[in-house]
Amino acid sequence: MDLLTAVFVAPFLDMAGSPVFLAEVVIVGVLTGVMYSLVALGFVLIFKASGVFNFAQGVMVLFAALTLVGLMERGVPVWLAILMTILVMIGLAFAIERFMLRHLVNQEPIILFMATIGLAFVLEGVGETLWGSNVKALDVGIPNASFEVGGILLNEFDLFAAASCAVLVAVLAVFFHYTTIGRALRAVADDHQAALSVGIPLKTIWVIVWSVAGFVGLVAGIMWGARSGVQFSLSLIALKALPVLILGGFTSVPGAIVGGLIIGVGEKIAEIYWGPLLGGAIENWFAYMLALVFLVFRPQGLFGERIIERV
């Protein structure tokens, strides 16, 4: 009985008892969720265009951030360093197409997946060799002061990060749904051979999509790297994107966003109100559990495209 009260009554009384704090938890959850969406987005882009789960996405985030910090450490001004990093990521996209994807056209997705595992190790090695393994502070001049509004503590950096992610996500959503190139990307994702037959240049599409994924990786790298410093662990934020992907579907940009928000808010509320019951640190597995529960009801994800196979 006590247990039932602790699980089903006490947390809600707690929420009702301090609505301001609950509001803060929700806001923090939303802001965090947007950051998850940002990471998930990189996966979605590549999955959409090549039907492959890019194991190297996390490492691409790391690699972009490392390059940016490395350039800044050598005295390059921030804006130029960002520009140069974007160029590096585009160059990387060309290299990936030239040396990896081109040779794997129309192979099974699992083969492409394996190739991205290889890519992750290569990028890791190259990144470490070029820029070293030390933790590097990343300061691109985003303000970081905290201020209180009606008892809710907000942080300028978190707000800025969320706003940039929101803009980026909106642009990408439009890009995918309303432009010719977006359609071409979806076509390639659907059927390589058919895409070729209508004259979609696979190479160009892949270069574009990996470049965009690299750019999204850079933004994610800046936002996450500014918190923790740029270091190897940055690649592990990919783990935070997985439940978002399961929830949102691998092919849906809006899914990545809404999925990120649900996971962000859900795990914060779970951790704060139910975490103490279970000894804390429940949010990581809770995120997966939440995603799996959704999966049972919507196997294609929140906004995933429903495909009815002819049986």
Partner: peptide, 12 residues
Amino acid sequence: RTFQNIALFKGM
């Protein structure tokens, strides 16, 4: 061209 066993973009 078209294909013997339809190659459409099924999600679109």
